[in-house]
Write a protein that binds this DNA or RNA. Structure first.
Lengths: 343, 343
DNA sequence: CTGTTAGCGCATTCAT
DNA sequence: ATGAATGCGCTAACAG
């Protein structure tokens, strides 16, 4: 450890024989003192090892932190495991980094925002937090909040038209009223297991993106003269290979065997295609599969996946920009169909 | 916005007709006042909408923040794009989350730690920052620092035995002194392009994990009676498909065509195998490929990749634990060979 | 252009 | 068990 003094504004001012306000001004308000004096002070500080006002104290005083909390729906692990979430974060950081704003990660499964609320200028909230209690807290805070993929009354938000996107992609997979459809859904019910949905799920259907997607599938099926049977809808608790494979095996083992698989994420669809391969089911001849998200791996997979791309990075950028500009309105991101070989 | 008052310790104390110290004690030092009084105060606060002392002020006072800065080697984008970095982060967060410590993301390409140093209890620094100037700053700060994959004098650190791991995996690929070897290296030189290395690179070879890996390859080759030719070593600036494909195409187009490809990351190796497939080169018959990292996708790829797994999540956990326990020593993580079909 | 002062919201003595 | 006073390090208003 170099033998360095822990300078403060006050002590350094004393050392330099000027008042603390002068030092403060030298760093923060160049117009308040002569150019020469300013440079003189700044150089002296640098020489002595004082690198500017303590940011914590400065923030306490100003009420401005240059930190925004990025609230993830679940534990932080989730974020870095899911490619869609990752690109969202990439978008957010690319905007904030430019502005010198730092990102504090916050888990949506936390009990309270108390631990961090006093350190940040506001929240960018990616997806409905697993802990619903947090939503109330966001409603009641007077810090800025931008929500993504869900809404809080009178807050800025960024959304994808999930119902329409699901409708569009389902249309690519459905061909006739003879089709046998199975749906591999993501977090349709609040249970941590892979299972069939059976009963109409009871969580608020309009606010959950999964239920919006389900509605889109439903509309597409209705158009084709088909109906959703709830014993052919699976709930998958997390978008990963483990849970998805279980659901896919179940779905592909029932009679009559489905020839259309509507999957609420690409990771789910890819797992399903792997299982189908293992079971020697030909894609797309015997089974048509569509995903949701448009991740890189889906393009590279053989056969490539037909899916609907939601530009997550764009979503992140927009959310960050809305945060910076104090937006209050709701915005929508366009989606785009990616036609592959899987249907 | 609910019409809520912005309570402070002082104002709430006044409201309740007690001194501010009493309220402070009620929240922080239960032993300083009677159980009944404490509960009475806490409940009154909760009812009025005061959720405890302002954390920013509290931290300024105590000098403790419950925030650790996670320093990424490059821009934040890098972190979320790279699966190895992601699992590292997963490990870190799994430990810190339990302790109620929050994570502030910090880009290693930043100029100064000034903007955040006053908000955090310390740094976990994942990989040598792109901006070398930061290293000096870490040396000089009196906050805690844990480095990963590199060292700063007298600081806690977590490392993988890169040289040995590279040696081990190269041994799986090398068969005879007739082998034609090409190396697809990661960030061997400080240039943002895909190119051959040619001259002995001049950055500090011992501190860079890439050069440690190169040394490992070299030792394995020497054992087999082979020599590295620098015109057969490529520099890839970032571990992604774009740069890697370019390098792979170059490497597979030279005469005599390499029959062994040593790749410094799995993403590079996978890209190389894709290129080889496009060029109708049979793996492993005509080309043996090994990677580095042991990511999920490498197992699933056909043919599956032979690689060496460094348990990144474990690395993250260890780094976080060392941070929490004020460790000062250097620790090593074991690696593990994963034998696939690619050689 | 410079210096003095009063807080930002809190924790911690030291009295009582 | 409790209350008054001091300062963590800083900024902004004001006076000179």
């Amino acid at each position: 450890m170099t033998n360095k003094k822990n300078w403060t504004l006050k002590s350094i001012a004393q050392e330099l024989g000027v008042s603390n306000a002068t030092v403060s001004n030298a760093f923060n308000r160049p117009d308040q003192l002569s150019e020469t004096k300013r440079i003189e002070i700044l150089e002296a500080c640098s020489k002595l090892g004082y690198f500017g006002p303590n940011k914590a104290a400065q923030s306490l005083r100003k009420g401005k932190f240059n930190i925004v909390a990025l609230v993830l729906p679940d534990s932080l692990e989730y974020m870095v495991t899911d490619p869609v979430a990752s690109s969202f974060m990439k978008g957010v950081s690319s905007i904030l980094e430019k502005q010198g704003i730092n990102i504090l990660l916050f888990s949506g499964s936390s009990e309270h925002i108390n631990n961090i609320v006093d350190f940040v200028d506001g929240f960018i909230c990616y997806g409905q937090p697993r802990n619903y209690g947090l939503i109330e807290q966001f409603k009641n805070t007077n810090k800025k909040v931008v929500t993504v993929d869900f809404d809080i009354e009178r807050n800025a938000s960024v959304n994808v038209r999930n119902e329409q996107a699901a409708y569009d992609v389902a249309n690519l997979a459905l061909r006739s009223e003879e089709d046998e459809v199975a749906i591999l859904g993501l977090r349709l019910i609040d249970a941590n297991v892979t299972c069939r949905v059976y009963d109409q799920p009871d969580i608020d259907t309009s606010s959950s993106i999964s239920h919006q997607r389900l509605s889109g599938y439903q509309r597409a099926m209705t158009d084709k003269g088909l109906n959703i049977h709830h014993d052919r809808v699976w709930n998958i608790p997390e978008s990963n290979a483990h849970y998805a494979s279980i659901a896919a095996r179940e779905a592909l083992s029932i009679q009559p065997r489905p020839n259309v698989l509507l999957c609420m994420s690409d990771l789910i669809a890819l797992s399903a295609m792997r299982e189908a391969k293992n079971m020697n089911i030909a894609i797309p001849e015997e089974l048509r599969v569509v995903g949701f998200d448009g991740i890189e791996e889906a393009k590279r997979f053989i056969p490539s996946l037909t899916t609907v791309h939601q530009n997550s990075e764009q979503k992140g950028k927009l959310a960050a920009e809305m945060f910076m500009s104090d937006s209050k309105h709701g915005a929508y991101i366009e989606h785009e169909l990616l036609v592959g070989e899987s249907c």
